[in-house]
Every structure is written in C-alpha cells, then in structure tokens.
C-alpha cells in the first residue's frame, strides 16, 4: 500500500492544501473586519485557530518537519483560551 508521500508531487499537494486553507483564513478576515459584534469577531478567531492547526499539519508534511506537529498541538491547546477569556471578561463578575 502506497501512501501519499511516496508520490513525487506530494509536496505540492500538501502545499496546495495548506494554501487552500490559508485562502479560507484570508476570507475569514472579512468577518473580523465587518463584525458587527465582538462575538462575531471572536467566532472568526476561533475558526482561525482550527484552520491554523490544519495549515500547520499540512505544512508538516510539505516541509517534512515533524516539529510542526508540536506547534499544531500547542496551538490546538491554547487557541481556546482567548475565547474563554472573552466570554468570562465580557460577562463580568455580575453573572
């Protein structure tokens, strides 16, 4: 059974995937800019975190860098904290 990475065009394939995900990320910037509310902006940031993990995983294959999986792991762990901080801080101590 041949895996994808044996193919000569595997690098370009992974780069294309990473590029595609990057395009969706750039498109998402529009939502951050438009808003209209802070919640919408945070939602876009939330999606960015996941997309970032996806791009890093694709790049780890494209560049043959195992260390990038660690970066993706760290990003996956920490991306949610901004969201939690947002909800807690915007709620304030009153709730």
């Amino acid at each position: 059974m041949q895996t994808l990475n044996a193919m000569p065009w595997a690098t370009n394939f992974w780069l294309a995937i990473a590029g595609l995900l990057l395009v969706t990320l750039v498109a998402g910037l529009w939502r951050i800019w438009r808003g209209p509310t802070a919640t919408d902006r945070m939602l876009a940031a939330q999606l960015f975190g996941t997309t970032g993990v996806g791009i890093l995983l694709a790049l780890s294959q494209a560049m043959q860098q195992v260390a990038l999986i660690d970066v993706a792991l760290v990003l996956a762990l920490l991306a949610v904290i901004a969201m939690v901080a947002f909800v807690k801080r915007m709620q304030g101590p009153s709730s």
Partner: peptide
Amino acid sequence: PSAVNAFQGIKLLLIWLLVLVASATASYLI
C-alpha cells in the same frame, strides 16, 4: 497513514480530540 511513527500518529489524534473538546465547549460558552 503518512505519520512517521506511532507517536506522531497519537499526537495527531490527540490534536483532533483536544480541538473537539475545546470547540464544543467554546461554542456552548458563547
């Protein structure tokens, strides 16, 4: 299938799992 060894594979699955937990909770919170 492209993971170089089992450790990397486990890490990949762990990433997915963490994102699942985190995103579900974050969605609920928001």
